[in-house]
Structures are given as structure tokens and as C-alpha cells.
Write a protein that binds this DNA or RNA. Structure first.
Lengths: 190, 190
DNA sequence: ACAGCAACGCTAGCAGTGCTAGGGTTTTGT
DNA sequence: ACAAAACCCTAGCACTGCTAGCGTTGCTGT
């Protein structure tokens, strides 16, 4: 029994190492640099070991995305609760969202542009994802007015997501980001 | 001289065939199905021929994206000019934008999510892209108020882009799309 | 008209990808 | 101590985008 728990512990440790290596590599050099071979070399095991932990590369990316959801939710919560008033809260949350995406692009990609299927169908992802969404909703609530809160939150979220993705892909000038963010917040606040 | 023009004509024709094949394949089966081998088979030439026309697969996708920009601009123009009043115009343009993205997902991907570099640095793309952006700006102008028109247009565009991408990747329920679109238009109109 | 040349498009192959089958080696339980 | 089972590695498959080199074809200048 003791030996089995030890092996399970070691397995869990190695699994965390895989996710950590994938995350670090992606953050440092982008997801294109994250190949199964490099990942295997990083954890000092052979490739097939990866597949004894995850169904495939997508599943590894999904695991990284899960961590991202937790981080984003925390960042949003911090921004919202530290704001002086509701008007400031939504601005700060919006700022926190775009900052997160800018500073952790690989994480953001894993969460929202790549890895389509896995996270949303799994079990624990909805928890952290829901936390993040709830933070957004709490910030949006005071300015929802007669509109359905969920619809407004989703639309506001879309605005943030659009700003981030278009800027990151070079479609929008980075210099005008603050102005656009202010427009978004203003239009939703009135 | 005549023979040279003929060859050039044939080359141009083949180049169009490549782009058309890429576009059709992408629309039918998605960009993952568009490999250089399938593309070559489709035009009944060998792979290397593709590289005598385009620098690489990305350049082919960029060429498809160019066509997409022209189509989108036309669709937006049609929606805007046929609207009864400015309030209706922005709603119709928004609707036309999301409809375009939904009906031609592969085209939209080539334009806005894949093929990062090429189109925006090239010569003729800015023309059609600018046309589309100008249509958006014309629709937004009446409701820009004191805000900078460009900033409002870019932000509105981001909202549309966010709605489309999040819905297409399964993050937003398709059923509530109309409601979210109405929220976006309303918030920007006030 | 014809020799020479240049353009052309093909076959074959490279380096890389995600993923998997099979066999040894080590560790385990009896 | 020995059979068995868990484990992990080597080697390889099918595929990707892309390219080097060659043979053929058709044009060109004399």
C-alpha cells in the first residue's frame, strides 16, 4: 500500500512536471516551440511517457489552460475588490483582463484560441472559468441596467477578447490600446 | 512577345486556380485539410509548382484572405447602404459582419486569426481591408459622439470579432447570439 | 532549319511533426 | 527465488511544409 501511494505520488509529480515544462516553454518561446520531443527532453523522459499521462498534446495544452483560468480569475478578483467604486471596478477589471492577455500570451492562447474542445467539456475547468466569468459579471452588474446580466457580461467579455486578439495579431495599433479600452468601458457604463 | 504574354496568362490562370482550390478546400473541410500535396493534386500539378507562385503555404492563405477582405467589404457596404436610418445601419452592418464570419469560417480564419504577417504588409490588401474598415466607420460615425471615430470603430470592430471568435470556438452559446449582438449595438448607440 | 539554351515541372528526399507498437529491464508480490 | 506485472525506451509510421537536382520540352538566334 505504501509503495503504491509512493508510485502514485511520483506519477503525479511527473505529471505536474510535464504541465510546468509545457507552460514554461510556451511562455518563453510560444506554442510552436512546444513539441512532444522537446517536452520529453525537458522532463528527462522519453516521448511515450507523455502519452501515459495525457491523451495527446492537446490534453497537455488543456492542462496548461486550466492553470491559466485560475490565474485569470484571481487577477480579475483582485482588480475588482480593490476598486473604490463600481465605475472604477469595471475599468480595473477590463484593464486586468487585457494586461493578463498581454503578459501571458501563451497562456491566453491555450485558454481561448487553441485547444478548442477539452477544457470546456472537462470537470474542473468550468470551476475556474466560472470564477473568472463571475468576476466579470460582478463588475458588469451595476451597469447592466435593464439588459440581461449574462448577455451583457458575455458581450463585454467579447469586447475585451476582440481587443486583445486583434491587437496581438497586429490588426490594431498597440499605442491606442488605452483609448480603445476607455471607449469600451465608457460605452458599456452609460 | 505574343508567346510570352500567353505564358504569363497561363501562369496567372494557374495561380488563380491555386487560390481557388485552397479556398474551396478550406471552406469545405477547413484549413487543416489544406495541405500542399492535396492542393497540388487539386490543380493537377506537382507540389514544387506551388512554390514557383507563392513563397509558402502562408502566402497562399494570405491570397485567399485578400479575396475575403473584398467580399466582407462588399457585404458591409450592401448592409449599410440599404438601411433606412443610421440606427438601423449600424445594426445591419453588425449583423452582416457576424453572418459573414459564420457562413465563411475558413475565410474569416484566414483573414483574422491565421496568416498573421502577410496581408497587412502587402500592397493591395490594405485597399480592401480599408474599404471594410471604412464601411464600419461610416456606420459608426453617427453614434461616435465626442469620441475619436477611429477608436470607436476599432472598439466596435473588436466587439464583433470577439463575439464571432468566442462563439465559433464554443465559448458562447450560439442561441444567444442575437441578444448579445443587440446588446453590443445598443451600448454603442446610446 | 536547326543547334543550343533556357525555362519548366517532375521525382525524390530532407527535417520535422504527433503518435504508437514492441521488446527489455526493473520492480513487485507470492 | 521465481513468475508476473508494471514500466519505460528504442524504433518506426504516416504525415507535414519545403527544396535540391534532373530530364524534358519548347523557345530562340543564327
Amino acid at each position: 500500500m505504501s509503495t503504491q501511494t509512493r508510485r502514485e505520488r511520483e506519477r503525479a509529480e511527473r505529471e505536474r512536471a510535464i504541465v510546468a515544462a509545457a507552460r514554461d516553454l510556451a511562455l518563453a518561446e510560444g506554442w510552436d516551440a512546444v513539441t512532444t520531443r522537446r517536452l520529453a527532453a525537458e522532463i528527462e523522459y522519453s516521448q511515450p511517457v507523455l502519452y501515459s499521462h495525457f491523451k495527446g498534446k492537446d490534453a497537455i495544452m488543456a492542462a496548461v489552460a486550466v492553470e491559466g483560468f485560475a490565474e485569470l480569475a484571481t487577477a480579475l478578483a483582485a482588480a475588482r475588490t480593490s476598486a473604490a467604486d463600481p465605475r472604477q471596478a469595471i475599468a480595473d477589471v477590463a484593464e486586468a483582463y487585457t494586461t493578463f492577455a498581454e503578459q501571458r500570451p501563451a497562456l491566453y492562447d491555450a485558454m481561448f484560441t487553441l485547444a478548442v474542445d477539452l477544457p470546456f467539456a472537462s470537470q474542473d475547468v468550468p470551476t475556474d472559468l466560472a470564477r473568472g466569468f463571475a468576476e466579470l459579471a460582478d463588475a458588469v452588474r451595476p451597469i447592466a441596467g435593464d439588459d440581461d446580466l449574462e448577455a451583457v457580461t458575455e458581450t463585454f467579455w467579447s469586447g475585451l477578447h476582440g481587443l486583445v486578439t486583434l491587437m496581438r495579431s497586429g490588426r490594431l495599433r498597440r499605442a491606442d490600446h488605452d483609448r480603445r479600452l476607455a471607449v469600451l468601458v465608457n460605452r458599456f457604463s452609460r
